[in-house]
Design a protein around this nucleic acid. Sequence first.
DNA 1: CTATAGCGGTTTTTT
DNA 2: ACCGCTATAG
Length: 678
Amino acid sequence: MNLSTLNPEQRAAVQHTEGPLLLLAGAGSGKTRVITCRIAYLLRRCETPPQAIVAVTFTNKAAREMKERVDDLVGRRQTKGMIVSTFHSLGMRILREDIAKLGYKKNFSIYGAADQARLVRDLLQGIGGERKIDADRVLWKISDAKSRLLSPEQFVPRSQDEAELAAAQLYPRYQRALKAFNAVDFDDILLLSVRLLDEHPDVLERYRDRFRYLMVDEYQDTNPAQYRLLRLLCDGHRNLCVVGDDDQSIYAWRGADVRNILDFEKDFPDARVIKLEQNYRSTGTILSAANAVIRNNTKRKEKALWTSGESGDLIDAILCDDGEDEARVVVEHIHALRARHELAYRDFAILYRTNVQSRAFEEQLRYENIPYVLIGGQQFFDRKEVKDVLAYLQVLVNPRDEVNLLRILNYPRRGIGDTSADRLIRISAEQEKPLWEILKGAGEMPELGEKAQDAIASFVALMERFRERFRRGGRLAEKCRELLAELKMEDEIYRNADDPAKGKRRVENMEEVVNAMASYEEREESPTLSGFLEKVSLLDRDTPGRGTKEEKLAQDAVILMSLHSSKGLEFPCVFLVGMEEEYLPHKKSLHETFDIDEERRLCYVGITRAQRILLLLGAARRKKFGRRIERVPSRFLAEIPAELLRHRKSEARPELSEAEQDKLAAGFFAGMKGLLGE
DNA sequence: CTATAGCGGTTTTTT
DNA sequence: ACCGCTATAG
């Protein structure tokens, strides 16, 4: 840690350790460096014990990277006990200790989107279902209320929207069901943490004593629940340092309230405010483009990003024929640029608005034998076969988890069909006992039919046997393997697969769960089944292949990710793909929320990820749902001054003459201003 | 209770 | 194009 390498503003931020601090940090202004230095400064110069420091980030990836960088600065030993985590991991830490005070049991389950949706769908059926209401929309309304800390009693429908009305009706039941199942959803992790600290001063006191220095990254993306959590934790010592940039606020859609950052000075009148405006990341050209785009947003704090560096290359804007062509062009450029600029694969990032866009690039990269890593897109843990395995484990940990219990009750098929399941649920409701308790006695329930009775009895026996086995300790992965073998999961998967090749993939996916568990077990000091499930639920799996040298080398890979997950990262060369209307800005923002500004910020985030080379790509047409659709270039392209761009079209389009190609390219890029007047 | 075919919705972003 | 859910028949 060498403070003399910092600019005056950065240094001031590092040295301001006591009292509230607002750090307005533009993209690429060395923000992470300041945060990590500040932590190192606290540890080294102020001799702050590591366990007194809490740094909260927005993603697991960011947390991991920050931790690593601090480790590099001060050494691993000095950071032991320091907390660098996401809000949700921090909440989990609080809940794990004391959730019993709120009437939940310690072995609670975490419900992700799919579990929540299933629950809401069931509840929707419970209330007179005149018409099919979209469970996801109801869920979204409930989630929105929870992120604003509204209790079921406080929730009042704000419109006559059917989802809104259904949400008002279902929110109380939903919350009651979760509690009965001893489960929490993502919003609860924050909401219950806040409630716990609110209602139990002794607990709050404990954390205030321990967490004496709080730091929050991406503060512009905090929602009211997160805000309240921070307020509770820092009241008293008020050592709160928040870092953010309103131009990079991209989570309003899930409840983030940019007022948190805009009103910080109101909340803390004695706050020190420091602006970081010098950019150390990108070339002048890239910065000019970014500034030109973001300038079109009206409600924002005026900022003047500048660089002392060179202006660099022009930005390539490439019109491609279609999606495959776009992927081909990107991969060709990776080959060429890698040679020309001596770049490694890891220096390239392909950024897109929606995760589905990754597929074409994956295919092309694989075809060309270029290593790549796909970030986000929780596709793996969302696969059916994976969720099935996890459901078993979840029920072993928390038998009250009814959503998962119902998922596995007749899978693999064991002769407990819908009729029996419905009866069991009814009995459970009548007797007000958990479903699992009913199952335990179902061996002797004449209303169930003999076959079902036997099936249930042996299911219960199996689960209890394995619960005991897991309790006894020993290798988790080994026991999990035994469980899957005993369930004959593999056979079941093959039986249900319409083609053996697909079945094989699914079996491999299932085995990957066991592998993930094994590697969790290896790296954790005291691994537990519930610990594993928690990691999986919070998507806090390690980046693949860390550790050995071969794995590190294997990590030299092109990176594919959504614009959202790219925030906070930087790459020498960035491909911003799908620069088309309805992708960026996204269709939904056009038709429903009208929040073009947030889409523009997203575009801004993408542009500012690039250090030296930036390419903007789009397709003239695309296959969608199997049919070809003509595409319109993104309005954001037209916001970039022409002198910063080098317009090109992808080569090799045999079905068009050169004149046609020219015409198409001209229409695509030059004529688009006319399209924007709508 | 299970197997199958047909239907409809899917595609925003993340913890 | 594809997946998962539902209705229907066995």
